[in-house]
């Protein structure tokens, strides 16, 4: 369970995120949606201990992220940032291998190598695994970053716009996998998505943010309402029933 209590962050006097109060239960896929600048990335970074809180408390699996050892947290929690840029030149496989760092401290065991191979194959990077990151397309690189995060094999996975740069087929595959990991292995996945319909199709719960606040939080059926979405995105949004569930039309 991810428990967020009274969390506040103020960047400047006029940009304030929070107070946020939310509990995300264990196992399942939760999507974070909302307009640009709503505070989604900020919230994710704070949960992932990459950004200090000004106030409040966050605990993941009953560990307070402010006081727990980073080394221990790395085995239960991982986070992928929205933007990644590495000056360091590594191959796809080397990067993914670093996902095993919390366990092997760099000296990959046979088992680590197998895990790395598994996720590289799974993300369709097999043919590219010895290419350098700066020789890949945007979507290929995004998949390499996701591979690193998945190699960490943590119970809690935070992803900031993992579908960035991915084509439709890859997006569907990625979401299928995340959903599978959540359902089959009891992983708790929190992901920022911009496509409401992807969120609706694959999530167990949706959390909508606006102006630094949590505007709505509930099941897909509860959030996929025309009034709620119209209000959050300030754009006229209607809901129709498609073959796989509700679809937002705008």
């Amino acid at each position: 369970m991810i428990r967020i209590e009274n969390v506040k962050k103020s960047y400047t006097s006029d940009v304030q995120i929070g107070p946020l109060n939310i509990q995300i239960p264990k196992a399942g896929l939760t999507s974070l949606i909302g307009p640009n600048g709503a505070g989604k990335s900020t919230a994710l970074l704070m949960i992932g201990r990459l950004l200090d809180l000004d106030e409040g408390q966050i605990s993941v699996a009953n560990l307070d992220i402010a006081t727990s050892k980073s080394r221990d947290l790395a085995k239960i929690l991982t986070i992928l940032r929205q933007e990644n840029h590495f000056v360091t030149r590594l191959t796809v496989r080397q990067l993914a291998g670093f996902g095993r760092f919390p366990y092997s401290k760099g000296r990959l065991t046979q088992q680590d190598e197998e895990i790395v191979s598994k996720y590289i194959d799974f993300l369709d990077l097999t043919a590219l695994e010895h290419r350098y990151l700066d020789e890949l397309s945007g979507g290929q690189r995004q998949r390499a970053y996701v591979a690193m995060v998945l190699c960490q094999e943590t119970e809690y996975v935070l992803l900031d716009e993992p579908l960035n740069n991915l084509d439709v087929a890859r997006s569907v595959q990625m979401m299928e996998h995340l959903k599978y990991a959540a359902a089959e292995f009891g992983r708790t996945i929190l992901t920022v998505l911009h496509d409401i319909n992807f969120a609706a199709k694959y999530s167990d719960r949706i959390c909508a943010m606006k102006n630094g606040q949590i505007a709505a939080y509930g099941t897909v059926a509860e959030i996929m309402q025309p009034e709620i979405l119209t209000d959050i995105f300030e754009t006229k949004i209607e809901i129709i029933q498609g073959p796989y569930g509700p679809i937002a039309v705008y």
């Binding site: 990459l50 080394r71 790395a74 991982t78 986070i79 360091t88 996902g99 760092f101």
Partner: peptide
């Protein structure tokens, strides 16, 4: 390995549990 990881930046390093 730690130095290579440091080359990926503070966020990645922290996320992977390195000081």
């Amino acid at each position: 390995d730690r130095l290579t990881l440091a080359g990926l930046g503070q966020d990645v390093a922290t996320s992977l549990g390195m000081n």
